[in-house]
Nucleic acid binder design. Sequence first.
DNA 1: AAAAATAGTGTAAATATTTACAGAATGTAA
DNA 2: TTACATTCTGTAAATATTTACACTATTTTT
Lengths: 358, 358
Amino acid sequence: MTERVIRLAKKQISIHDIAAKAGVSIATVSRVMSGGIASEASRRKVEAAIADLGYESNTISRRLAGQSGRSLLLMTTDVVNPYYSALCQGAETAARRNGYSLTLACRELENRLDENTLEHLLSLPVDGAVLVGSAVENGTDEQLLDNLLRLQQKMPIVTIGPRIEGLSCVNITSDLSVSVKKSISHLIQLGHRRICYIGGSSDSRSYRSRRESFISEVAEQGLELLVEDNCGTGFSARAGEICTARLLSRLSDRDRPTALVAANDLVALGALRQLLRMGIRVPEEMALIGCDNQFFTPYLTPPLTTVDLHPEDHGRCAVEELIRIIGGSGDVNYSQVRECSLIVRESCGALLGARHFD
Amino acid sequence: MTERVIRLAKKQISIHDIAAKAGVSIATVSRVMSGGIASEASRRKVEAAIADLGYESNTISRRLAGQSGRSLLLMTTDVVNPYYSALCQGAETAARRNGYSLTLACRELENRLDENTLEHLLSLPVDGAVLVGSAVENGTDEQLLDNLLRLQQKMPIVTIGPRIEGLSCVNITSDLSVSVKKSISHLIQLGHRRICYIGGSSDSRSYRSRRESFISEVAEQGLELLVEDNCGTGFSARAGEICTARLLSRLSDRDRPTALVAANDLVALGALRQLLRMGIRVPEEMALIGCDNQFFTPYLTPPLTTVDLHPEDHGRCAVEELIRIIGGSGDVNYSQVRECSLIVRESCGALLGARHFD
DNA sequence: AAAAATAGTGTAAATATTTACAGAATGTAA
DNA sequence: TTACATTCTGTAAATATTTACACTATTTTT
């Protein structure tokens, strides 16, 4: 009934073997390994034995004895979304560079961190967790807070995304209002006055924050707010298509916006396709601006103007912060706001005449 | 000097606490947990105590005592490439469904599994590894074999990609010759005779295998082999651009191929852009076919015809095989060849007149 | 009724490490 | 020479589990 395990033949070389070979006790070996107090003579003998036998200390028992196992958890929504996969890549690289390994927990697109997932996370042998995506985006603040506090009892956490009210932890965030401001000023500079935000889901806290920034910035600049209730439907290319079709079918040609700000590049991709389908030329008749600077954006026709949030940087930062916290040094409750940059290409009409290609 | 570790207050509830509460020995608790021999009475008492105290067994010590820690390793090249991220998603989901966790080791695009990385992998507390990308693609067969055999001494492995000569392990693979055959027959059906393969890197074993298939299929069909040495330069969109530009600048208009088969969708994306830049219309003047059915392909202009290798399926399969092997049942040395499907869209001229959109 | 088999249980060893504590060896000061 | 401090080392306990082994109690077979 009990599961049979393949036992791979050779017994591990243990600290005991080293001790025997070097003619010292296991305690001394351990101290040499961890840089503790030991005489030069012992140190040399132990190091020779280690090199000789090719010994590597065992993560499992080190951890059982109360040490860090040097492994971190990354919880994301959906690595297929290039924003998350770039973040993941950044996190993994940073972890590996610091001698940590990274365990991945993804969710298919779901509403929130549920009971099962939480149990799974809690049972994982890791020293800390980076949380991004639905785990910190979707659901009410109380639900999120409940789950995260429970997780936090077991391990330190770092969140990426909008700060969660009432949770004290390190938080990596983009100033979405800056990203929106940059997009809107770029459009205004190019002469646009009728700008509409498309795509996204109001389940997402990032979305809500970005949308609020959009609304307030539109007001600030004295622009008209266009069909504000048309936002939403999701973060996919399909959502971009649907959303664009719905928006334009509702409005007469003269009420139509002259520029669309998409929730992300996927939404922009779908919008672009829908605009083409409807015979509306980009950027001549409609400007389009995305978000995330995903790898395919320079290759679209026209190349997409977008905002780079530097997700690899988010991943790297979160991991470095987490390792710092595990090391026990410094502040464990603040937000680090990361830069974002507007990447100007041709989908809003800039650069156009100059050189259509390149 | 020694790193200080945050110790989170509460001591874990252990098997001893359960034993005490249930009035039995720890051995009995362990047997109840693992479904071993125990009386109904003990079983009930133990289960009550477990529910009462909310006990969860400790992965670390279970593993130290020689049991599976229920965690797997996935080694990929580069999760930012959508093929790998889809694979990764499939693997993670399958692992989680089976109660396993998935640790990720990515490499930035590098030539091969080097010494450092291998050390890292060997030190990881996992029960088995799925290998895909540069770890099983790049380098000579001897180098690969050396590394993989060393890894295999520590844990069972499953590889995804072309089978490695001399390595006995489970291998998940796509029949690339079928994928190439499907692409070529599609093009021939549409009247093409001058077909050229672009992109990819001869460091990659998948690439070499796919290219060989291309060459032999071109011969089989009695087609002319076009500038065969022009292949290569990489798997990125940039590579597609460069490769296309170079190819077309070398040939007079009448020697030019009428169809391009790209190493993957990224290469096709770059090729598409370059063709547009050179004023060559797709599909009217040049057909283009990709590989991977990445999420952006339906949204290109024209929508890209491509081959879906079903990477999530590869990931899922590999993980399921690995878990089976860890469970100790069945064959541990064979190749499982997975299906691939041609996704016909408009970039080769099919579907064109009928309905240009949708 | 005796012998044998079976079911259930507890003790203790095993896994590979860290570290508190005690003790030994050495050096320094009075 | 004695007292004290310092440096170094080894023993053993601790971590949370599994499991071999010995033992008891029950059931089955002869």
